[in-house]
Design a protein around this nucleic acid. Structure first.
Lengths: 253, 253
DNA sequence: AATAGCGTTACGCAGAGTGAAACGATCATG
DNA sequence: CATGATCGTTTCACTCTGCGTAACGCTATT
């Protein structure tokens, strides 16, 4: 979408054009970018170089960007701080991280914890597989809810009607094979808080060649066990045999 | 500093006033804030409520804030993403995290990894002590360079002249007792990359009652060992007996 | 029932934010 | 080595963006 259309939309939605333009400068960075020049930033956001220069000065002053000696820019430390504060606002890292490590160790596959953000799921924490070939979720990734086991479980325990969600609520877990990424199979379980609201999901993922239905059966025991322990640690109750739960939908928006 | 003075400074420095105001809204959140109301945000940043409302709309549209159902705001998922990208831009997490866990386990104290950001140090990764009493660094914390062992080591290996830096360069480590926080003692070692530039420092910290000079001697062996292993993993070379290094100053700004 | 404070909307105004043009420096190419 | 391209930066006239006051309806508190 061209910059001008985004400006009009910002205005129509009651926002501030200059602010959304500046944030677009931050968003221009991808995971592969160690640094970006002013000219490249201007090209990526579709604005003139003097305009982008002014934005980089403000973002740098506030710590969101750092200007290197060679006049290129990189993401700044304030993002580390606010990113950590975002994660800490869930107040669960000290429980989730050890759980993920145990899960990765016991299953040999990558483990990740997702939370729902609007109509997507966000990878909040992850531990990679000890094996050389493994699925690699990235912290901060936003992924669809209706593709892949973690998203399906989040939808199920947010009250989404119909199948497969009714079945997921009965079973207490879900497995998919190549649903989002053709090469990746995943299994996920919900994690509950003290109000029995679903806080997030714990998931294991690996290549479809290694995770078939037998592997699902093998991985399910530690996944459930560790998810249940996480639930207990976070103040939720687990129910024997994961019988049907009809929980009130918990919204986060 | 009042908002008006900050606006003038932004202008004088060639920035964009509205952008720095909006970033101030993000900065208004502290680690204790689960959510903040519009009115509270307006008070904290010293702007009118309609102005802050416009900023929150732009920040929410871009994913930096989330508006809750009860019209309060919390930090948004984009910060998790960019914070993770900031950390990942160091490309060292997969080595540092296991090293920190081993260090915490072997010493029984909290372990943290710091990098230099301008004239401060930023806590990039940390693992807390297994004991119930322990120092608790927070990811994203910005701390002074000239207070506490990690900062001193960063200064030493960035070429800072004089004592104690000459001695630190000779010894290859530094210990402080209550220098930054009266109750906290810390020990730190440098970690080098393949160009022999210092990437960051590895540090252990705990209460001064538990970390005396005997404890320093005890902790130093695993700290050095693990820091050396990190250096090797990251492409740097370790020198026997940590003899004197006169490395060219490495600037990051 | 009265009051305080909330989030939100409307609107006129002033200056903030803008981008074209130009400059000197640096880099790439022949 | 000369030339052209591209860089980051500065200037400046213009316009429309961003602003805060005032007011409103709603909710919570006393």
């Amino acid at each position: 979408m061209p910059r001008q259309a985004l400006d009009i939309e910002a205005r129509e939605e009651g926002g501030v054009i200059a602010v959304e333009r500046a944030l677009a400068v931050l968003d221009a960075f991808t995971a592969d970018d160690r640094s970006l020049s002013l000219a490249e930033l201007a090209r990526r956001v579709g604005l003139s170089k003097p305009t982008v220069l002014r934005f980089t000065k403000s973002l740098a002053r506030a710590g969101y960007l750092v200007r290197n000696d060679d006049a290129t820019f990189r993401l700044g430390p304030k993002l580390a701080r606010l990113g950590a504060m975002y994660q800490a606002s869930f107040r669960i890292e000290d429980y989730v991280q050890p759980a993920l490590r145990r899960l990765a160790q016991e299953t040999g596959e990558s483990a990740a914890f997702y939370v729902q953000e609007g109509d997507k799921r966000l990878c909040l924490f992850r531990v990679d597989s000890p094996q050389s070939i493994g699925h690699r979720a990235r912290t901060g990734d936003l992924l669809p809810l209706d593709r892949g086991a973690p998203g399906r479980v989040l939808l199920a325990f947010s009250g989404e009607p119909g199948e497969p969600y009714d079945q997921i609520r009965r079973d207490g877990f879900y497995a998919t094979f190549g649903e989002r990424d053709p090469q990746v199979a995943s299994i996920a379980c919900p994690v509950f808080g003290h109000g029995q609201e679903v806080i997030g999901v714990l998931g294991v993922a690996g290549p479809t060649g290694r995770i078939d239905t037998h592997a699902v059966a093998r991985h399910l025991e530690p996944l459930r066990s560790i998810a249940d322990e996480l639930t207990r640690q976070l103040g939720g109750k687990t129910e024997s045999h994961h019988s049907t739960r009809r929980l009130r939908a918990s919204t986060r928006a």
